[in-house]
């Protein structure tokens, strides 16, 4: 008995569904749910995380992310303008910077700032400054590239048309080029905030006081108390998702919808 291609495809899909259902049933029947819940999602342990995980850890994660983003954006704007400059050495410096910090692991930067510099020079930044620099210098490299791409994606004819109407360079950039570049840059910029949120977990490498714990360090400390199991890390993970999922939705929203940069 021969089957048409469409019938074969339908049969294949049916088999895949059947396998998935069997696996699901096996999980439900065979797994020891009491033990799993006890060790992974223990409600009592989860409750123990509060309120510290919000008032200390989530708050600090947000602070570190914002610090990194502020430095990253400021430095990124400068680097993007340098990269588009007509002065060649500016372009070289910006290229060198961007290639370097996109090419080395953020972990290395954290170790350099947290341990390398104190050991080499016997001198240590304030905790928040260290975090800001470590997160910011890497983010700046990525942000600079996004901004450059966004500015270059606006056709040169837009600038020329604006100048031809008598607008100054600054006026043409502010009213015509940057609003259009912003539309292009918002999705990658939002993604950069997501990456920064997650990279802020690297702060846990730096020694710090209890009140400076961020989500990952807080979870790490949580699982070392007796009988806590995985639950503290699960709670920390959910806290990350509370930040990153809305940002992801926002990014997609920017991508899909034409953001109207309306003048007042």
């Amino acid at each position: 008995m021969s089957m048409t291609t469409r019938q074969r495809a339908r049969l294949s899909r049916g088999i895949q569904y059947a396998v998935l259902v069997v696996v699901l049933i096996a999980l439900v029947v065979l797994a020891d749910w009491d033990v799993l819940l006890q060790r992974v999602l223990n409600p009592a342990v989860a409750m123990d995380q509060f309120p510290g995980i919000i008032t200390v850890a989530l708050k600090n994660t947000l602070i570190y992310t914002v610090l990194g983003f502020v430095l990253g954006l400021s430095l990124g704007v400068v680097l993007a303008l340098m990269k588009l400059s007509s002065v060649a050495p500016y372009r070289w410096i910006a290229t060198l910077y961007i290639e370097f910090f996109r090419g080395v692991p953020a972990l290395l930067v954290f170790l350099a700032l947290g341990y390398g510099i104190p050991l080499a020079f016997g001198f240590r930044f304030n905790h928040y400054v260290t975090v800001m620099i470590a997160l910011g210098v890497v983010a700046a490299a990525y942000i600079a590239e996004s901004l450059r791409a966004g500015l270059q994606a606006v056709p040169p004819g837009q600038y020329e048309a604006a100048r031809s109407l008598g607008m100054s360079h600054t006026r043409a950039m502010v009213t015509i080029v940057i609003p259009q570049a912003l539309r292009i840059v918002l999705p990658p910029l939002t993604n950069e905030v997501i990456l920064l949120t997650k990279d802020s977990s690297l702060v846990y490498l730096l020694g710090m006081g209890v009140e400076q714990y961020e989500l990952t360090k807080f979870g790490r400390e949580g699982i070392s108390s007796a009988g806590a199991g995985l639950t503290p890390l699960m709670v920390a993970g959910v806290c990350y998702l509370i930040i990153t999922v809305p940002l992801g939705l926002l990014s997609r929203h920017f991508e899909n919808k034409t953001v109207r940069v309306k003048k007042s």
Binding site: P155, E160, A161, A162, G166, Q180, R183, K263
Partner: peptide, 20 residues
């Protein structure tokens, strides 16, 4: 800029501002 205010330019690719 003062000179360009007196000289209108129409481009092959129109170059209208798409966000306005």
């Amino acid at each position: 800029d003062a000179m360009r205010r007196r000289v209108g330019m129409v481009f092959q690719q129109f170059n209208l501002f798409p966000h306005l």
